[in-house]
Computed example of a mutant assay.
Amino acid sequence: MSAPSSLAPRLSWGRIALFTALGLFALFFLTPLYVMLSTALKSMDEIRNGTLLSLPLSPTLDAWAKAWSGACTGTDCGGLKPFFMNSVMMVVPAVSISTLIGSLNGYVLSKWRFRGSELMFALMLFGVFMPMQVVLLPMSQILGWLGIASSIWGLVLIHVLAGIPSTTLFFRNYYVGLPDELVKAAMLDGANFWQIFWRIVLPLSTPILVVTLIWQFTNIWNDFLYGVVFSGADSKPITVGLNNLANTTSSVKEYNVDMAAALIAALPTLFVYVVAGKYFVRGLTAGAVKG
C-alpha cells in the first residue's frame, strides 16, 4: 500500500511542469551548439540544399581540417593553428601565476593580517569592478617601457595583473573560513610563513583552487579586447584569429569552415567544464559557505 504514495510526488503536475520547463530551456540553450556542430560536419553543397536544423547526411571533417590549417585569416592562409598555440602559450603561465599570487594574497590577508590589510583588500577589489577599457592606454605604455609590447609575454603580464583582484577575492574569502588554530598550532611547532602555506593551507585549498583555475582559464582564453589591442603579428590569440577568419572576405562564404573554427576555439573551455564542471560548482559552494 505504500508504493503508490511514494511514487505520487514523482508524478505530480508540479514536477512534470518543472522538468518540462527545464527541458525546454536546455533545448533552447543547446540548439545553437547543435547548429554549429551539424553545419561544421556538412559540405557546402549539403548546406545549400538542406535546412539549418537538418542532420549531416554525409559527415565530413574537411571543414575542420581547413579551419585548423588552411583557412585564410586576412592575408595569411595558415588556419587557426598558430593562433591556438599562441593562446596555449599565453594561458598556461598567466593562469598559473595569477592563481599562485591570488592564493598568497588571500593567505596573507586572511591569516597574517597587518595594519591596513583590510584597506589594501578593499583597494584591490577596485580591480574586479574596473572596466577593462580604462587600463588600455597605461598598460600599453608600461609594456613599451618594459620592452614586451606586442608579445605573448606582454599578454601574460596583462592577464596576470587583471586576474589578481579576482583570484585574491576568491582565496581570501575561502581562507577566512579556515580555522586560525591551524596556523597558530603550526607556528607553535616551529613552522614558518612558507611552510604553513605549502604544507597546511594550500592542501586544504583544492575546492577554491579548482574554481580559480577554471575561472581564470575561461576568462583569459575567451578574451578578445586585450588580445586585439596588445598582441603583435606573431602573438595574436585564438579569439583574434577567429575574428579575422570570420571577417575575411572571399568569393564564397564557407559557413562550415566558420562553424568548425568557432568550435575549435571553444573546445578547450568546453573540455574544462565537462571534466571539472562539478568541481567548479562544489568549489563555489564551499567558498560561499566558508566566506
Rank of each mutant, 00 (worst) to 15 (best):
L169R: 00
I101T: 06
T239L: 01
A71H: 05
Y34V: 05
G241D: 03
G78H: 04
T248Q: 14
S5H: 15
L242C: 04
L209M: 06
S151W: 05
D258S: 08
V289S: 09
V252H: 08
G127K: 03
T31A: 10
F114E: 00
I142S: 03
G163C: 10
F193I: 06
R48W: 05
K290W: 03
A3E: 08
N247P: 06
F19L: 14
V134C: 03
G70T: 07
V201W: 01
F230H: 07
L270Q: 08
A286S: 09
P93W: 03
L267T: 10
D258Y: 10
N256A: 07
M44I: 15
G287Q: 04
F230M: 07
L27R: 12
T31R: 12
A191Y: 09
A94W: 01
D189A: 03
T269K: 07
M259L: 04
F197Y: 13
G127M: 04
V95E: 06
I200M: 12
S205H: 09
P59W: 07
A265D: 05
L30R: 08
G78E: 11
V135L: 12
K290C: 10
V281F: 14
G79E: 05
G127H: 11
L209N: 03
G106E: 06
L146K: 10
L245T: 02
P268L: 06
V201R: 00
G163T: 07
Q141R: 05
T168R: 00
Y174D: 01
G144Q: 14
L204I: 07
S166E: 09
N49S: 14
A65Q: 04
L146V: 12
L104Q: 14
A262R: 00
T167S: 11
T218D: 06
R48A: 15
A122M: 04
A67N: 02
A185R: 14
D189Q: 08
L155Y: 12
S250V: 11
L52Y: 11
R10T: 12
L270M: 08
F29V: 06
F217A: 06
F171S: 00
M259E: 10
A233L: 13
I164D: 00
P56S: 09
L245E: 07
N244S: 09
L270C: 13
A246T: 15
L7D: 13
S140M: 12
G102H: 01
S43P: 13
I152M: 05
N192C: 07
D223L: 02
S117A: 05
D62Q: 11
A3F: 15
Q195I: 04
I220P: 03
I264R: 02
T218P: 01
L284F: 12
V128R: 09
M89V: 12
L155P: 09
I142C: 04
A286V: 09
Q195A: 12
N49Y: 15
G163A: 08
P4E: 09
